[in-house]
Nucleic acid binder design. Sequence first.
RNA 1: UCCUCAGUAGCUCAGUUGGUUAGAGCACCUGACUGUUAAUCAGGGGGUCGUAGGUUCAAGUCCUACCUGGGGAGCCA
Length: 481
Amino acid sequence: MELKRSFIKDLLISEETDKQVNAKGWVRTKRGNKQVAFVALNDGSTINNIQVVIDIANFDENQVKDITTGASISVNGTLVKSMGQGQNVEIQAKEILVYGTANPETYPLQKKGHTLEFLREIAHLRFRTNTFGAVFRIRHAMAFAIHKFFNDKNFYYLHTPIVTGSDAEGAGEMFRVSTLDPENPPKTEDGKIDYAEDFFGKETNLTVSGQLEAELGAMALSNVYTFGPTFRAENSNTPRHLAEFWMIEPEMAFYDINDNMDLAEEMLKYLVKYALDNCIDDLSFLEKRLLEDEKSKPQNERSEMPLIEKLQFIVDSDFVRLSYTEAIDVLKNSKPAKKGKFQFPVEWGIDLQSEHERYLVEKHYKKPVILSDYPRDIKAFYMKQNDDGKTVRAMDVLFPGIGEIIGGSQREEIYDKLSSRINEMGIPEKDMWWYLETRKFGTVPHSGFGLGFERLILFITGMSNIRDVIPFPRTPKNAEF
RNA sequence: UCCUCAGUAGCUCAGUUGGUUAGAGCACCUGACUGUUAAUCAGGGGGUCGUAGGUUCAAGUCCUACCUGGGGAGCCA
C-alpha cells in the first residue's frame, strides 16, 4: 500500500510512534559504519532534519552507496523513539527509493560551512542550506503577513503596472522596455529614435514605483496597497541595493502625516511580531549563525543584542519621532559634530548622510527613529507643502543597521500647489494629466509610504547583504540564473 | 561611479627579503570501526597560483591594464 507522504516538520513533533510513515526529501549527510547508516533528511518544511536509520543488512549495497549528500530519496519506515541523543524520533527504514543521485565528487555543497559569497555563485543550490532555507521560509512568512495585515485593516491589494510610460517621478534611472531592433531602430526626420514606432507607441520603462497609480486607486477605494517588483537601473554597488527588488506601497485617503507614521510603526511591529510568533526555529538558527559569524569581528562591530532580543525590542519600544529641524539640532550638538568627526558637516538644508542617520538611530536614541518635515528642496514634487514655505510633510523610518527602511509622505492634494511644484521642477505637465485630475475631481488629503521588502527581510533575518535575502539577485553586471 | 582590500586544490586559507618538486584543514576515494550527531582513525588522488601583458638569470611573490568578489561612500527602498 502506498503511504501518504508526511512533511518532516510534522513527523518531528508527532506523538504517534511505531507507526508506518513515508518521508521524501534531500540527504544532508550520511554517517555510520558497515552495519548501520544514519541519514539526515530534509524536505524544506523545517530547518530540522529527520534521522533515517538504515540497517545495511536489509538493503542492497549499491543502493546504500547511492544515498549520498544531495541525493533525493523517498523512505518508507517506522517512526520510532530515537535510541541515540540529539533527536526525539527517527525513521527506521524499511524501503528506500532513490529518485536522483548526487555525485559526491562534483556536488558542491558540503556539511561544513560555506561562505555566503560562494553560495551566491550556486544560487540554484543554496536553498538546500540551513541558512537559505531559513531566510526564504521567513521571506514567505513576511509576504503572507503583509497581505494579512492589510486585509485585516480593509486595504485592497492593487496591481499597478510593471511597464510604465510615466517617467516623471524621478525615483531613479530606469530600464527601457522596447521591441525596436537595437541594430537598426526607426528614426525620426531629425535623426532621433522614433518611439512612435515602438510597441506601445511611446517610450516605456520598467516601473520604479507604483505610488502614483496607487494614489489613483486610493481616491475611490480609500485604502490600497501595492506589493510587487520594482526596478532601478542605478549603478549602485552596495549590500543594501538591488536593481530588481520588491516594494510594499500603501496609500490611504483621509490620512495625514501622523496617521501615516502610526500605520508605518504599527505595520513594522506587526511584521516583526509575526516572525517571532511563526518562525522561531529559523530565527534561532539565524541568531546562532550570526553570533558565530561575529566572533571573528572586533567588539565594536558586533551587534548590540542577539537577533531575537533585537526583534523583541522593536516590538516593545515606541519609535522616536522628531522633525528634520530637531534632528539637525541634535546632530549639531552631538559629540562627533563638535569633535569634527562627521565627514559631511551638518547644516539645515542638507540631505542627511548615512553617518548622520546612524548616529541618531544607533548612538543617540538607540531605537527606530521616524524623521519628518524635511526641507522641500531635497524631496519629491508630490509631497505636501507645510505652511512655513520651507518644508514638506515627508517621513522616513530609520532602522538600526539598515538605515532608511520606509520613506513616505502626505501627498499634496491641492491642485494649484501641485501644479506649480511640477512646473518648478521642470516636469512636463502634459505627462501628468491623469495624476493632476485626481486633484480636480473630489480631491482629499491622503498619505502613503514605501517599504523595501528586502530591507525588511535583512533586518528580520540579521543577514548583512541584500543579495542573500532574494532568491536570484539582480545587480549591476549580474543577471545569472 | 569613487575609495579600499582580496582572488593559490571542490571549499576555507598559509606561502618569509623574488630562488629547488607550491602546503594545511575540510571535502572526495579506499580501508578499519555494532548507534552516529560537523562521527572517529589510517592511507590515497587532486593545482595553467583570476585574465593578459611586462621587469628579471629566476615571478604565487614586483609593475601595468582588465575581470570578479568583499568592506566603505554616493544614489535610494
